[in-house]
Structures are given as C-alpha cells and as structure tokens.
Design a protein around this nucleic acid. Structure first.
Lengths: 165, 165
DNA sequence: GGGTACATGTAATCAGTTACATGATTTA
DNA sequence: TAAATCATGTAACTGATTACATGTACCC
C-alpha cells in the first residue's frame, strides 16, 4: 500500500490521541492540520480502514449501540509514521491558487483583491489568536512553527493583493 | 457539467493558442501555468473530450496518419471562460506543503531545510529568468503578475527555511 | 544502424468529492 | 416540543494518478 499525506495525517493524529474514532479525527483535523490541509470527513472513514487492512492501525468496533469504530497504532504503524517524519526528503507543494489562474488568463487583479484581502486578513487574525494561546504550552513546537509559517504566508499574500489594488 | 480549474486551464490555453492538440496543451501547461499548477498529461486527453461533450470545445480529428485530435473554442466555451475570468469570487487555496505536515508531527525543521532551500532557490532563479524575458513583451501582464507572486512566494519560503536552519 | 528523446495516446485503479441518511443532544 | 446542531456513517460518481504502449525523428 502506498501511503499518502492523508495516510500520515491519520497516523499522526491517532498517535497524538492514543486512540481515535473517525469523528475524533474529524475534530482533530479541524482544530490543527486542517488550517493548511483539509480532508473531507468521508476520507476519515475510508482511510483508517485502508490503514487497518495494511496492518498499520488496529481497529476495534463497539459491540452494542452505534458500533462505533476506533483505531490505535500498531507497531508497524508507529514505525511507518516515524520513518516518514524522520525522512528529510519531501515533495514540493504547488501554489494552486485559483485567483492566480484567473489573473494568468486575464482577470483584473484589482477586482479580485477585496475578497482575497478579506479572506487572508481573517485567517491571519485567526492564526495570531491560536498562536497566542499555544505559545508557552509544552510540546507544541511543531504546531507553533507551522502556524508561524501560516502567518508569514498570509502576510505575503496580503502584500501582494495590496500591491495590485 | 461542473467546470474545475483543470477545465479552465484547458479552455484558457486553447483560447490563447487558437487551436490545440493535447500535446500542444501539454507543452502549454509546462511552459506557463505549470509553474504553479501542474496537470498530468493524461488529463489533457480526457479533459478536452469532456469539454467537447459539453459543447465548450469543438473537436476535429485528422483523417489520415495518426488521427490526432485538435480542439478550438466554441462560442459557449469562450463565454464560459470569460464568465469565470470576470467573476471576482474565487476559492481559497490551501498550503498543503508536505514538509509542514512533517514539522507538525514532530520532524526536525533543520533537517528538512537544506533540501527545501535548494528547491526554492532553484525555482526562484528560474522565475527571475523567465520574468526578465517576459517583461516588455506586449500582453503579458497576467503571466508577469503570477510570476511576481511566484517570486514573492519563493522568497517567503526561503526566509522561513533560513530561520529554522 | 542503434540509441535516446520527443510525441501521442489508452487503460486500470484509486482517492477524493458530493450527496444522502439518520440518530442523539442540546437549546430556545 | 420543535429546531438546530453535533455525531456517525454509506454510496455513487468522477477526476486524477500511474502505468503501459508504440510511433517518429534526430543524432552519434
């Protein structure tokens, strides 16, 4: 089985939580990685199933009631996650910004700017708030760094859209 | 039919070229939008076919030889493209940077930095070269603006990776 | 004449998107 | 007690990825 970023997000969140249901994962994504990498919740049902088939997660299902599924890491799962985290090679992300596509094909940037500026400013404010709460907590270096990068990114976009306004 | 960014890239490139085969599109993507939005070439066979079924492209096929397909815009296709370009509302892009995911889940940023820095510096140099050739040409405002954004983006990433080195 | 790179496509699989559903809790 | 929202899933479709294939042209 080929492991995708989605797989590692699931593995990572399960590791952080110890044990998680798809719904926990949904909440986990929304409150953390989801800021820069969202996953539709249907994938959070499908993906753990795949990972369980591959032996990287252990699945348990409630016998009564709603028969909820919950997952935890197997040894193999932990190894796969750690190998990925430890590997210094990564792919490159693409910009894939729809507004840039429009500009490329002739849109007037000044017309796009107001909506883009509002969106970026809102996210920037959100990030600043989260980071204020997070700083000082123990064991949050990773999340704090990604937030810092998120902030720099929003600032960079804001400068761009201001320039073309 | 729902039109995706892929659809608009195809429509836009066909408009720019007047008429194009899938292979022309492949070259077109590689030399332009591909810098921030790549499309596997198999999609450049599938997507025009869909667009032709939807009446947005007109397909012609060589009778002899390799029976190459070529496409041009229909009136409806041109309208759809212009409506999209003229609409000031766009979705938001996500960062989706694999290296950030790794950091989020505990990777050492200093270990990731060298490869990332090399990649970003190479792209930055490439962009600067293209932009130097492009500036001054007529009717290249769109592409030049996207390149400028690409450059700012690379610079912003380079700052980030230098900071954590 | 043989290798290498460009040109041109097809097919199978799979992940992701979208939509549909419904049970349980809280709140007005 | 009705409405809203949270919790929990499934199913259908379709776009994207990957791999396979082969033809043509040019260069050594």
């Amino acid at each position: 089985m080929r492991l995708s970023p989605t797989s590692y997000i699931v593995l990572g969140l399960v590791r952080n939580a110890g044990r998680a249901t798809p719904y926990d994962l949904k909440a986990g994504v929304a409150g953390s990685v989801g800021n820069f990498w969202t996953i539709p919740h249907s994938q959070l049902y499908a993906e753990p199933e795949r990972l369980a088939r591959a032996g990287l997660l252990h699945e348990e299902r409630e016998t009564g009631g709603r028969r909820r599924r919950s997952y935890e890491l197997t040894a193999a799962g932990r190894e796969a996650l750690e190998a990925w985290v430890g590997d210094p090679v990564t792919e490159s992300a693409e910009l894939r910004e729809p507004a840039l596509l429009k500009i490329f094909f002739g849109a007037d940037p000044a017309a796009l700017a107001p909506a883009r500026l509002a969106a970026h400013r809102a996210r920037l404010a959100g990030y600043r708030e989260i980071v204020a709460h997070l700083e000082g907590q123990p064991a949050t270096e990773g999340p704090v760094l990604t937030l810092r990068r998120g902030i720099a990114n929003e600032e960079s976009w804001i400068r761009f859209w201001e320039d073309v306004s």
